[in-house]
C-alpha cells in the first residue's frame, strides 16, 4: 500500500471543506482499503468520517426514513423500522458480504462500492475504468460475472452491490454535501453508464460528501422482496438479483418499482418495464421488456435466462400472480 495522510474529521463542515480530488472519505473501508492494498486506489489522504454524527436512522414525519451515511450495514439490516417497512433493504443487505464485513461497511460506502471485475482489480491488466483509455481485458476475456445490460465498447463491469438494487427499487434519495452546500440526488440519476468514460461511475464531484440516504414512505399494502441468485448459498456476489416494491390497493396494482443486480453496469431499473404491468400487461411481457437490450459477452450468455427467471419469480411472488 502507498503512503497516505490521515485525518479524523471533527465536524461535518470540516469534512466537507477538506474533501477534494485525491482525497477519499473513509467509512468502513471494506472497499477502499482492499483496493488501496491492490494499488487500484491511491489516495493522497483519507478523511475519516466515522466520528461524525452521521450514524442515525431517523424516522421521518411522513413515514419515510433518513439513513445516515455511516450507519453500518448490519445496524441498518437489523433495524426494526427498516425490517418492518423496507424489508427488501434488510434482505438485500443480509444477502451481501459476511457478518464481519457488514459490521464495518457503511450505507454511503455501499452506494460507492466498486466492481469486482478481475481486470479492474489487477493493475497488471488493461482496464478503462482503472486507467482511462488503457483498453478492456474483460471483453473477450473472463467475463462470466460481468454485465449484460448497460455495457459499452469500453467497459462491461458489473455494479456488485445488493443494497443498491434495493435502494433503486425503493426510490432512494442521496443527500450530498458539496462545494455549493447540500443537494439531493434521486438514485435514478445517481449512477452513470460507462459509455467511453467508465472511470466516472456516479454524478458526484470531487470532494462531495454523502451525508445520508432517505427513503420515501410507502403506501399501505406495499409488498417488498429481494431475491439473489449466486454460485453458492452465502458470501458470494450476485449472478442475478431482483428487488421488487409493489403496492396493491383494492386488488389493484397502484405503484411498482423493481430493479436488478448482478447483470447491469449500474443497479438496473427500467421504468418502462414497470409501466407494462401498471397498465395491465403480463409479467412475461414486463420481464421481456426489461431484458430486451441484454447483450451477453463470451462467457455470460446464461445470465439472460437466469435474469429472466429471477425477475419472473420475484414479480410472481410480489403480485401473487
Amino acid at each position: 500500500m502507498q503512503s497516505f495522510g490521515y485525518k479524523k474529521a471533527g465536524s461535518l463542515d470540516e469534512a466537507a471543506r477538506t474533501g477534494a480530488d485525491g482525497i477519499k472519505f473513509l467509512g468502513g473501508g471494506t472497499t477502499l482499503i482492499d483496493l488501496m492494498k491492490l494499488e487500484v486506489e491511491r489516495p493522497k489522504a483519507l478523511v475519516d468520517i466515522t466520528a461524525l454524527p452521521l450514524a442515525a436512522i431517523e424516522k421521518q414525519k411522513d413515514g419515510g426514513v433518513k439513513i445516515g451515511a455511516t450507519v453500518r450495514n448490519s445496524d441498518l439490516a437489523h433495524n426494526d423500522y427498516i425490517k418492518k417497512n423496507y424489508a427488501v433493504l434488510s434482505q438485500a443487505l443480509l444477502a451481501g458480504a459476511s457478518a464481519q464485513l457488514r459490521n464495518k461497511a457503511t450505507t454511503a460506502g455501499n452506494l460507492l462500492q466498486r466492481t469486482r471485475c478481475t481486470y479492474f482489480r489487477d493493475p497488471s491488466r488493461a482496464c478503462n475504468k482503472r486507467v482511462p483509455k488503457s483498453g478492456c481485458g474483460a471483453i473477450g476475456g473472463h467475463n462470466r460475472n460481468l454485465a449484460i445490460l448497460g455495457t459499452s465498447n469500453d467497459c462491461i463491469a458489473t455494479n456488485p452491490s445488493d443494497m443498491n438494487v434495493a435502494m433503486m427499487a425503493l426510490g432512494a434519495r442521496v443527500h450530498v454535501l458539496g462545494e455549493k452546500g447540500e443537494r439531493f440526488i434521486n438514485i435514478d440519476e445517481f449512477y452513470l453508464l460507462p459509455g467511453n468514460t467508465p472511470e466516472k461511475e456516479t454524478v458526484l464531484q470531487p470532494g462531495d460528501l454523502i451525508t445520508a440516504v432517505s427513503l420515501p414512505a410507502l403506501p399501505a399494502g406495499t409488498v417488498t422482496s429481494y431475491l439473489k441468485l449466486r454460485d453458492r448459498a452465502s458470501y458470494e456476489f450476485a449472478l442475478a438479483s431482483s428487488a421488487v416494491v409493489a403496492s396493491i390497493q383494492g386488488g389493484k396494482l397502484t405503484r411498482l418499482r423493481f430493479a436488478m443486480g448482478g447483470i447491469g453496469t449500474k443497479p438496473w431499473r427500467n421504468p418502462e418495464a414497470e409501466k407494462v404491468l401498471l397498465n395491465g400487461g403480463t409479467i412475461q411481457d414486463a420481464v421481456a421488456f426489461f431484458l430486451k437490450d441484454a447483450k451477453p459477452q463470451s462467457e455470460n450468455g446464461f445470465k439472460v435466462e437466469l435474469a429472466k427467471r429471477c425477475l419472473t419469480h420475484s414479480l410472481k411472488n410480489a403480485l401473487k400472480a
Binding site: G5, Y6, E14, T18, G19, G22, K44, A45, E179
Partner: peptide, 28 residues
C-alpha cells in the same frame, strides 16, 4: 503530497468558507 493539500484552499475560497486551519488539514 503537496498537490492534494494545495487544492484545499481553492475549494474553501469557492464556497466563501473560512480557510482551513493547520489542525484541520489531512495529515501528510
Amino acid at each position: 503530497a503537496g498537490a492534494g493539500v494545495a487544492a484545499l484552499p481553492l475549494i474553501s475560497n469557492a464556497q466563501n468558507a473560512p480557510p482551513i486551519s493547520e489542525s484541520e488539514k489531512p495529515y501528510v
